[in-house]
Computed example of a mutant assay.
Amino acid sequence: MSVLTPPRADTVTVARASLRGSVRVLLRVHRRSLWAAGGLLALCLAAVPGLLLWVKSQSSKELCPDGDMTPCGDDTYLATPARSVTESYLASGGSVVLLLSVLVGAFVAGPLIARELESGTFRMAWAQSVSPARWLAARLAVPAALGVAGISVLCLVYRWGWTEISGDGNTYGLAWFSASVFPGIGPVAVGYVLFGIAAGALCALLIRRMLLSMAATAVVLGVVIAAFTKRRWVLWPTERALDTGWTIDGNSWVTVWGMLTPSGEKLRWENCSVILGDTPAADCMKARGGVTPFTDYHPASHFWPLQLVETGILLALAALAAFAAFRVLRRLHG
């Protein structure tokens, strides 16, 4: 009877120990890569306060609150070298976050999973009471925990630096809706990291070749990033202003503007300008039946809805890719 009785307590203990053991092995085997990633993260984190201190050290040269070194109210704006460099760096913060997401996904696809499948070293772990599912779970959990923690800290520091500089008013390329800023100042960064990890695991299990898996992961992430960048404005309904004058503040994201016909058809200014060349755009629009100027835009209050919708889609894609990865693993190895 004792032989037939399932040892439930012992089984649970072995399962937990196996997962912890897999995590410890991963951390030990890839410790150099983790140290390198930590150093890169520390460098990015240190750059933001360092640049802000540099800007503050040259504040005595600025004659206006917006950082202008020329007299206030004139037609010339000249920023200090520190402010110009800082604005250029911070204007690319979101792109840096996306690049880090691609690197994390490629690392998961290549050295973490595909290399072991290609070389056959995974059999050693599976022969030591580590099931294939637990083996894959450890390779998803470790980069997910470290990646989410690191990218969250980086985004908080970047958002702080972005707020400090963009709050001065006269800045270039730091609009909240900029494609190179938006991904780095909200939770959408976490969504990209998690999707990169899940997509990398799925590509590795499907291809099982390190370099090809890394390349495929980069292509998948590149396509998703490009799609969101191009169509992000449709994730939340825009607002419409009907006016002959420009009444929208500079912190709003204008998506479409032109004139409406009596039937409600939208005529875009840029299309009219391209078609008729030197003909004044207003005359062109009226000739095509335009009667009411309109502007579709996202006010600054739409920042969080856009962030949360994009994050939700990315998390759903990540969950789908992770589920598919486990299904592929089960189909190939049981």
Rank of each mutant, 00 (worst) to 15 (best):
C155W: 05
V153L: 14
V104Y: 07
P111D: 12
C64F: 01
V328N: 07
A37L: 11
E270H: 04
T229I: 04
H30C: 08
Y89A: 12
A179W: 04
P65I: 15
G169V: 04
F107A: 15
A226M: 09
D243Y: 00
L329A: 05
G39W: 07
I185Y: 01
L112M: 11
R32I: 15
A321R: 05
L156A: 13
R16L: 11
T76F: 14
A141Q: 13
R115F: 09
M69A: 13
A175T: 02
N251H: 08
S84D: 13
W304F: 04
S59F: 00
G94R: 10
A319L: 11
C284D: 10
P49G: 04
L41V: 12
H30A: 09
Y192D: 08
Y158H: 03
V55A: 05
R16F: 12
V142F: 07
V223T: 04
L103S: 02
L117A: 12
A300F: 09
V104F: 13
L156T: 10
Y297V: 03
A9D: 13
F107R: 08
I185V: 14
R115S: 14
E310D: 08
L267Y: 06
D168G: 08
W162D: 00
R240A: 03
T163H: 07
S60K: 01
G334S: 14
A322N: 13
S59V: 09
K56D: 14
A204T: 09
N170C: 11
P7G: 07
V85N: 03
W233F: 07
R28P: 04
L26D: 10
S213I: 10
G73S: 02
L235W: 02
Y158S: 03
V234A: 13
D296H: 00
V14R: 10
L99P: 01
V291H: 06
A322H: 04
V48C: 01
V309C: 03
A82R: 01
H298G: 02
A17F: 09
T279N: 05
A216S: 14
A322K: 02
L4G: 08
L98A: 03
H302S: 05
G67Y: 07
K286D: 13
Y172A: 05
D168T: 12
T70F: 04
L329H: 11
S22N: 14
W236D: 06
D278E: 14
G186Y: 01
